[in-house]
Design a protein around this nucleic acid. Sequence first.
DNA 1: GGGTAGTGTTCGTCAAGGCGAACAAATGAC
DNA 2: GTCATTTGTTCGCCTTGACGAACACTACCC
Lengths: 189, 189
Amino acid sequence: MASAGNPSKPPLHSIAATLRRGRQAAGLSLTELAHRAGIAKSTLSQLEAGQGNPSLETLWALCTALDLPFSRLLDPPRPRIQVIRADQGQAVTSAWADYRATLLSACPPGARRDLYRVDAEPGTPRTSAPHTPGTVEHVLLTAGRALVGPADDPVELNPGDYVTYPADQPHVFEAREPATRALLASEYS
Amino acid sequence: MASAGNPSKPPLHSIAATLRRGRQAAGLSLTELAHRAGIAKSTLSQLEAGQGNPSLETLWALCTALDLPFSRLLDPPRPRIQVIRADQGQAVTSAWADYRATLLSACPPGARRDLYRVDAEPGTPRTSAPHTPGTVEHVLLTAGRALVGPADDPVELNPGDYVTYPADQPHVFEAREPATRALLASEYS
DNA sequence: GGGTAGTGTTCGTCAAGGCGAACAAATGAC
DNA sequence: GTCATTTGTTCGCCTTGACGAACACTACCC
């Protein structure tokens, strides 16, 4: 069968765009980033122009300098904040058993989602500094009550409620009742 | 200033191991894979030996030939069934607020996780046919009680308990109390 | 105006990666 | 046993990526 010629080209332009966005988000000049990464700025310039065929060392140096996970090199754009209340969302029901599954969020290609269980008590709200660019958080409240979301526009959640929001900006988790619990998925890639 | 010298090296040996495992899993000889990927077998040989500094084109060609997502190049092995009870797991606590986050599962590179909310009632258990190979499910029980996991070895869960198990084999979700709820993450790629 | 300190670009040089042939080592057919 | 065939390795040649200087350009200060 021999699929000898493989015409698939590496997504150079995606990588170029990712690098440029990453660099600008970090507030670095091309010269500065090249210096930190230990590569020539000419190399970086060509890369951001979507030209060439960079070596692993070059890509890796840029990733570490930008504090980007390597797998983040080829990625898409952004999402926004969204709430699905406990009684909302389109559910998939089972024909045989009394079972309802509601799709809260399909995972975007290439993304990674770490899963956390959160236990919080009323008092000082927990405010998080912005994570790396592109990070999105998902919260499903399982018990209690909480104010969750972007620091400047949080959402009140009751048990069963779900919210997703960009986490590359300041965000907050404030328990409103004792023994508040949630599942938190941090999506970052 | 000037973090000029960046001593961090690309994980060449991880990539080498991944490539070798991928190739052997596909049942390909070094010659055959090199031919399919359109690269010289000498190049591939050196790569699997953990030497050199491959170019993006080379790595990309190998990924497409092996049908591996690019981000999967530097990855560890596989998971199995695991339970983290409500009071278990190592938590990250906040210095200021009464907030505890427990990492349940870090997402493997290249994987995708769809998030579902499940509502189930006692009665006939819901049994699922095996999903595509490599699929893993994560369940965090939020209310009620349930028997969850591989059909031949399910686990009893109480609120706050977490379980993960391979879903490319028959598995079950059986509510043991009315108004049983859970978050289900389906990890499949 | 000139001078300076930034920006990101283009160019010539050099080292290094990729290629293909030649190689050794293991296996199977006869 | 010999002859094939396939395995993965090593080697010389050539292409090419990375480097660094020189470049054009802008902004700001004096």
